[in-house]
Nucleic acid binder design. Structure first.
Lengths: 266, 266
DNA sequence: GGCTAAATCTCGTGC
DNA sequence: GCACGAGGTTTAGCC
């Protein structure tokens, strides 16, 4: 990694360095005393204080305060980043075109600028996502303690997509809504919407709605029961164990079948 | 701002510097070649590559790749940050207790460490939020072209909170759901939920549901009309003008009051 | 601490 | 390019 550190320059000199670094799509860090204005979908102002500015190679633009996870101001991807010295201040403008938004930094002092060549081609692998859980249950519905035949994944119905759709051992239609986190009223409502839509489109009354989640809020459970829907608890630890097992087996077999596509094509 | 820059140290020396800086709640930046594992609500692995690590004064922990707005891994607030040198690697563990999550960084190389004393006490003022729009309409319902008397803000009903609640000129109950961005089916659904709940709790059928938003998706509008609900377009620019005006008047009044106090104290 | 909903949400995916 | 939904969402507000 090629890293350059700049300290003790004049604002004009910093401007030169920053302008060149950004033009060359380097990664840039700026430690600065500044105020910030934002104007776009919303609007904000931030008084003077000490912050870290990160400008990424794709011109993502982040302003971080000394505390907290979130940047105080940002631009997910800027179309223009402009540096000017005006009235004793280094003014940085990060502009985004769609939606039209602008972040303006007014730096009275720059303590440090770091310019780095960075390369990162590594693969990011995430697991235990809702997708993965969904496909696992589709392959093996007994996980949720039901004798089901899953016939569709992400089945489109009027108000959206049903996570899992199938038939139980009594030939009743089953609509499943899946959450990988605590289910709230929103989730109950989503399920209810789908059940109503399926009932209507099929002209059948014997449609079961099952909410599958690791946990559910008390009021959501009450709401769900009042609507005649069901809740099945999901054991995430067990699921992860099964997924781990499958992954091992899969990497041995090296099978590349896409379950979603498989179901779609039927 | 007191800034210290470290380069060319051994991993063991870096460990010392980082350990001390974090213990003293300094802001820390690390440019490093590393791999990352995450295990908690979800799980992920990331192969070796060049990244920026930010450790904030409150032990928020962010790992950024050279591109994109989002950190690839993070800890909103760590309870423990631990540094060890193991097998030629600097291993950084950031642990969060609730929920139990752990991010593990394995650094094969450190290019730069920056340790900074940073102070930022400035106020962050955000405007044109849903709150502000809500309160403005509450004060002046004619903005949405209706003769309304608003009687409640954020009225709690069974499934959640009604943004604005009131009575129209024909004595019909009005439930208003507000969005500051394009309204989707989700918003329609939210409104529908509230209208159903209010109808039920009052035993009245003459309850109007109005979705107020700057725009609405086509399918959401169809859905809304099918449910017998209404949509009112919001002119954000006009709203912002009014808010600006009000703010000016308010600050004049405020400074006037301060002036009054000032004179009283003499 | 639980619950509810907003967010300059961002990001991926499908049409 | 829009629409829709997930997210390790995070954050704020209220009880």
């Amino acid at each position: 990694m090629n890293v350059r550190v700049y300290q003790g320059l004049s604002l004009g000199e910093y401007r030169e360095v920053l302008e060149k670094a950004v033009r060359e799509h380097k990664l840039v860090l700026v430690l600065t005393t500044c105020s910030v204005d934002y104007e776009g979908r919303g609007a904000s102002t931030l008084g003077e204080g000490e912050r870290v500015i990160i400008i990424k190679r794709d011109w993502a633009f982040l302003i971080h305060r000394p505390n907290g996870y979130s940047p105080v101001n940002w631009q997910p991807q800027s179309s223009v980043i402009d540096f000017e010295v005006e009235g004793g201040l280094l003014v940085i403008k990060a502009v985004r075109s769609r939606p039209r938004e602008i972040v303006t930094v007014r730096a009275s002092d720059v303590s440090l600028v770091v310019v780095a060549d960075m390369s990162d081609k590594a693969e990011f692998v995430e697991y235990v996502s809702e997708h993965e859980i969904r496909d696992l249950i589709a392959r093996n519905p007994s996980i949720i303690g039901e004798e089901l035949k899953i016939t569709s994944i992400e089945k489109p119905v009027e108000p959206g997509f049903v996570d899992l759709y199938g038939i139980d051992s009594n030939n009743r239609i089953v609509v499943i809504e899946l959450k990988r986190v605590t289910a709230t009223k929103e989730a109950v409502n989503q399920l209810h919407r789908y059940v109503v839509a399926v009932k209507k489109s099929l002209g059948r009354r014997d449609v079961r709605g099952i909410l599958v989640a690791p946990s559910i809020t008390k009021s959501a459970l009450e709401y769900l029961e009042r609507l005649g829907l069901e809740y099945k608890q999901l054991n995430l630890k067990q699921l992860r164990r099964i997924l781990e097992e499958e992954k091992k087996t899969k990497s041995e077999k090296k099978s590349g079948a896409n379950l979603l596509e498989f179901f779609r094509k039927r």
